[in-house]
Design a protein around this nucleic acid. Structure first.
Lengths: 137, 137
DNA sequence: TATAATATAACCGAATTAGTTATAATTAGC
DNA sequence: GCTAATTATAACTAATTCGGTTATATTATA
């Protein structure tokens, strides 16, 4: 399952993307507005920074800003960064069919189902979400 | 994630469907052929029976047989029976957006991604799998 | 009556998840 | 320089889930 942390990370990025480019937003502001524990926001920002999507300035008047183009960050990217590789079944975490078989029909179905899901998550970007979110609140 | 138990259940049904209609197959045979612990096979058969897909005859010369049309059992059915309701995010287990909002764009994306996956799993049947599996071994 | 088989429930250790706590580093303003 | 605000990072924890086992009862054959 896609974890809540991954979902929060998406929300945090969308929140950042909804501010003017380069604007600094504090963890606390994000946490309060999106109703996420400040601790979690801070923890997740660490990952987002590592991925090269955000950068922070410390001290009073500090905050976080986006450093990547939100139209280039897909939901799949964010999920993989936070949760690690995506797999709807344990089978798909291996790079070959189990046992010593060369082919497995079931694996083919899992793979197709997962790819179908990933297609949607690869098409959806943080920017789209940030734009749409304006009408959500 | 789709659990191994759900995956095993699918395999067990496919194995049963690969035998002549009405033929009795023992848990032990299934377990050995598909490399699943006998205990697990037995445990899962209990669920499959509950779903109305199989029935067993006890005693020596007993076994399990399919009682449902394998072309009517979809992978989604099996997964839901074993794992319970499917949800790729926690959000989708609730029947409304979180908070007191009437709309949530992110939820819409999760929903679309999940449905896309379910479309594949709803289209795939035990019969198809059983037929294809002949070439897998 | 012994044995082979299904049926059902309870249990268990390990991993994962969601979230917290603790602590360090940096910077602005007084 | 000191204090407070803020990011940065790591370690920890309680609760849940997962994969699998164990135990016991029931049924049917020979």
């Amino acid at each position: 399952m896609i974890t809540k942390k991954a979902e929060y990370a998406v929300i945090i990025l969308a929140e950042l993307a909804s501010h003017p480019e380069g604007a600094l937003v504090t963890s606390k502001e994000i946490a309060e507005k999106r109703k996420i524990s400040v601790n979690l926001v801070v923890q997740l920002l660490s990952l987002l920074k590592e991925a090269g999507w955000t950068s922070g300035t410390r001290g009073p008047a500090g905050g976080i800003k986006l450093t990547a183009d939100p139209s280039k960050i897909t939901l799949k990217d964010v999920i993989e960064k936070v949760d690690g590789p995506i797999g709807i079944t344990r089978c798909l975490f291996s790079d070959r069919p189990c046992g010593d078989r060369s082919h497995c029909s079931l694996r083919g179905i899992w793979s197709k189902a997962q790819q179908s899901m990933l297609d949607v998550l690869e098409e959806a970007t943080i920017k789209e979400l940030a734009d749409a979110a304006l009408s959500d609140f």
